[in-house]
Every structure is written in C-alpha cells, then in structure tokens.
Amino acid sequence: MELILENFEVNFNPATELEEILQNVKTIVTTYKYSVPLDREFGINAKLIDMPSVDVAKIKLGSAIIEAVKKYEPRAKVLQVEFSGTTIEGLLVNKLQIEVSV
C-alpha cells in the first residue's frame, strides 16, 4: 500500500477504519516533534532532515518513522521505508510500505 502525501488534507470523518489509519500514519510522518503542544514527542525529529550525510539521514529517518508509527498508530506496521532524492537536489522523499490490521 502506498501513501501519497501530496495535497494532504485532514478528514475529520473518515469513511472507513482503513482511511482513518492511513490518515493517522500520514499525520505522524508529516509532523515534527515538539510542534504538538500536549504531546511534544509526537512526530519525527526535524533535526534528522538537515544531516550532512544523506545515507545517515536515510537510516535515522527510517528508524524514526518506524518507531513513531509503532508508538502512535499500532494498527499499522511499517514493512519498508524507501527514500528517493540526493544531496544535489536537497530533497529526500520517503515512500512507506505498511501493513494494516483492521
């Protein structure tokens, strides 16, 4: 299953449990830690994005994504995290493969 984050809008009334889980995973991976007032640990550490080594950033971001999803959305299990992008582009884009327990 592929998560596409382009034009991501929150749906406060998801039609299915699957839609709710996918939306929760999208929210987790697009939120920076310390930006949520009542749960400062929610999300991904933004400092990982600016690491000088792309290879190290990929490893640490992948691990952070897996741990955050495991903690905040236990109905989803991250099977694989792939990254595209280079230091020349200055952009890392992640693609998650997840398994959902509905």
Score class of each variant (00 low, 15 high):
Gly90Glu: 03
Asn11Thr: 12
Leu96Cys: 04
Thr31Ala: 00
Val29Asn: 01
Val93His: 13
Val36Thr: 14
Met51Pro: 03
Ser101Leu: 10
Ile98Val: 15
Ala64Leu: 06
Met1Asp: 11
Lys26Phe: 02
Glu82Tyr: 02
Gln80Ile: 07
Ile59Asp: 08
Val10Gln: 13
Met1Trp: 08
Val81Glu: 01
Leu18Ile: 11
Gln23Val: 09
Val93Ile: 15
Leu92Ile: 10
Leu38Ser: 12
Ala76Trp: 00
Ile88Tyr: 14
Thr30Tyr: 08
Gly43Arg: 05
Ile88Met: 11
Gly85Phe: 05
Thr27Asn: 12
Ala68Gly: 07
Ser63Asp: 14
Val100Arg: 02
Lys33Val: 04
Lys70Asn: 12
Ile44Trp: 06
Gly90Ser: 04
Glu17Cys: 04
Phe42Thr: 05
Ala57Met: 12
Val54Lys: 07
Ser84Lys: 12
Ile59Pro: 03
Thr16Gln: 01
Glu99Met: 10
Lys47Tyr: 10
Asn94Phe: 11
Val25Asn: 02
Gly43Asp: 03
Asn24Asp: 15
Ser53Trp: 11
Tyr34Phe: 12
Lys77Tyr: 05
Ser63Tyr: 14
Ala76Asp: 05
Arg75His: 09
Leu3Gln: 01
Ala64Asn: 04
Leu48Arg: 03
Leu18Glu: 15
Ala64Val: 02
Glu89Asp: 12
Ile4Asn: 08
Leu18Thr: 13
Ile98Trp: 04
Ser35Cys: 08
Glu20Asp: 15
Val29Leu: 06
Ile49Met: 08
Val78His: 04
Tyr32Ile: 03
Glu9His: 12
Glu73Lys: 05
Val56Tyr: 10
Ile49Gln: 09
Ala57Tyr: 09
Gln23Glu: 13
